[in-house]
Design a protein around this nucleic acid. Structure first.
Lengths: 117, 117
DNA sequence: ATTATATATGAACATATGATCATATGAATA
DNA sequence: TATTCATATGATCATATGTTCATATATAAT
């Protein structure tokens, strides 16, 4: 608040701030977006999601593929489920997980472009 | 390790694990990808980046637009700079920040699709 | 019914993160 | 060159995060 006052007098470019503020999406959307990206922001979850891009897998297989404990994988799957990034179906004792939609593929493709360029 | 042994006997679908393991990218890439997404996984940084999609802005303007302290913005800009998500140019005392490439726009577009559907 | 198996969940712990405050830097101006 | 201003940085602290271990649940098999 105090800083805003000082700033308005000295440095702020008023029209720029006003214009950008109007274009800025809502707090809610910013938080949702951040939550989505945060879910993708962990190596274990990245590996889980990338593994599921090939085919559906059970928790045990996922753990073996990415080299993590089944408990750790299960915990991370819960986060991915909450954000509707993965879905699952039960077959007896086994839960098969798969990607919930194709957004992840596209996000990964974009992300890889940035990372590998 | 112990769990792997137990698992191999009981639950693992060997060919599936083998196939997916081969398709899986390297540990390094997984970590880089996670770092990129993690950088996008914070409301303050999301707002900064989205603001910069409209036009270049100085630290002071950014702080005013998103309603955060200039110090907080500066700290976050450092993270974004490290990951080559933003670039900057100096004009006297003022630093103007802008997006470093167009990947962020595409990532945001994809992310918004998921979040708002 | 009892046991085994696949997965889920809760508690605990170490580490990471983001904001704030104080201070430092670097450029313009008096 | 002394001061002011815009930004950067370091320290600190409260909170969040991810793993592990122990335990619970749900299904299948005996």
């Amino acid at each position: 608040m105090v800083e805003l006052d000082r700033c308005e007098i000295n440095c702020i470019h008023d029209e720029a701030v006003k214009a950008v503020k109007e274009a800025l999406f809502s707090e809610d959307i910013a938080i949702s977006l951040a939550e989505l990206f945060k879910a993708l922001g962990d190596p274990t979850r990245v590996k889980i999601l990338f593994s599921l891009m090939t085919r559906e897998l059970c928790v045990c297989d996922l753990a073996a593929v990415i080299g993590a404990s089944e408990s750790a994988v299960s915990h991370q799957l819960k986060i991915l489920r909450t954000l509707r990034l993965v879905k699952f179906r039960r077959e007896g004792k086994i839960m098969f997980y798969s990607l919930d939609d194709d957004h992840i593929e596209k996000l990964f493709a974009q992300g890889l472009e940035h990372v590998t360029e």
